[in-house]
Write a protein that binds this DNA or RNA. Structure first.
Lengths: 244, 244
DNA sequence: CGCACACTTGAACCCCCTCAACCCAAGTGG
DNA sequence: CCACTTGGGTTGAGGGGGTTCAAGTGTGCG
């Protein structure tokens, strides 16, 4: 995974890492033409976030925007007593910080070692001004997230525990089709059961029990805690859609 | 409410209704300068939607965008068996149809007689091209909705019934401060209990019971089914925040 | 007046949560 | 090498918040 990157790095100038970025194709950065990549690279600050680090804290001044190039982060909101709602998981290509407000509306924690590019607010403003296509891509991105958020509201407000877990699994399978295509219908789960639960509005125990039951019913297989195989896609799809 | 509008209509040319639009100040249309309003007006098709009419149906071709000038609509998604999740209520100034997709991701129904402006997809594209400020405003709008959606996910996934209803009431009070400021802390509820329930991920009965209990506890008063007075704002605020 | 519709209230039930024990794999240190 | 710890995951028993089912109460409107 890291080998081809270094090879391509050698082909380009060391000062133009954006050209070698494996996440560029999926991200808002593809709104910027090749000839302007140096400009983009100069605005970006590459950074590595170790697993477990909280690099965005809800309520803090929103001084930077982020673009993930590898790894996975969870986005979440907290209630004062510690109840947590995960609003999404973000991986390579995902843009973070879409908000007009002066403060972040959510927190973000790396759930595995994560590489990202940080853009300061002023730099971002400059980029948007100079590359109108970027703003268009940001709007597209925001709209897509809005659609996803509405779908998640339907899940949280109206679906049963079984429907939620099924929805989660098929959504994960869909999101992994383009990039990390593993053999068969196996999907990776970089997040813990607790994080899945906080994403689906359930408890750890309910997530665990539901997955165990799916396994007993031969709908899925669980080779390891971080991997699931979908054995009965049609059934999972219809369960996810609310047809049990 | 309608009297001042007709007076201002007389001051302007009849062909420039946008200049007289009472919703313009709150809407994305304020991105367009006065001198270009005629251009805006020529792209907009004013329309009246009677109460109960569904004017956007999930899955249909997304041929138009809408801007509400008066009234209220509910935005919702359905599961095949009829379960409904209301993703939001939209009133004057709200822009509908933010989506890149070719089809609508949600349905919309007028819950009272509603006035709106419709923009065809091509006209909208033209407007955005000619007025970059419009795209910027759309991005702002999308970001704000995203923040609201995340807050709603927290509510749906992690708040109790009492916290949900309290959150709903204080949010309604906040949204009505600028425009329909009624006497005291009274707020209007144009939607039915069923619609509130579908918005909060509860049942009609739970909404009704919870509001009755708030009333018995002297936190609110319910002068009519479409009106609520907030008697104990501090308590409601902390209940909404999750501090019971 | 009486029908329709929205809302309220009560009682029983159930899905999911809470609490608790246990399992298992991966360190860690003596 | 093994005892111990730690963190994530599973499984069971019991309880509770919200749902379901069912009746009853307004209230507007023909």
């Amino acid at each position: 995974m890291h080998r081809p990157r270094s090879i391509r790095m050698a082909l380009h100038h060391e000062l133009d890492p954006c050209a070698a970025c494996t996440a560029r194709g999926y991200s808002v950065c593809n709104a910027i033409e090749d000839k302007d990549l140096a400009r983009l690279a100069s605005a970006a600050m590459a950074r590595e976030i170790p697993k477990g680090e909280i690099f965005i804290e809800e309520g803090e001044a929103a001084s930077e925007f982020f673009n993930i190039t590898s790894g996975t982060v969870k986005l979440y909101k907290l209630l004062p007593d510690g109840r947590q709602q995960v609003t999404g998981f973000a991986s390579a290509g995902h843009f973070l910080g879409l908000a007009v407000s002066q403060t972040y509306a959510f927190s973000a924690e790396a759930i595995e070692t994560t590489q990202l590019c940080a853009f300061s607010r002023p730099k971002m403003r400059e980029l948007i001004q100079d590359f109108p296509a970027l703003e268009q891509r940001l709007l597209e991105t925001a709209c897509n997230e809005l659609v996803a958020a509405q779908e998640q509201m339907l899940l949280l407000g109206r679906k049963t525990a079984r429907e939620r877990v099924a929805s989660f699994l098929v959504a994960r399978a869909a999101v992994q089709l383009p990039c990390t295509r593993t053999s068969g219908d196996s999907i990776a789960l970089p997040m813990t059961r607790g994080e899945i639960a906080d994403y689906l509005g359930l408890t750890i125990e309910t997530v665990s029990r539901t997955m165990s039951r799916f396994k007993a019913e031969k709908r899925i297989a669980i080779p390891s805690n971080t991997e699931v195989m979908l054995l009965d896609r049609p059934w999972l799809d219809s369960m996810a859609a609310g047809l049990d």
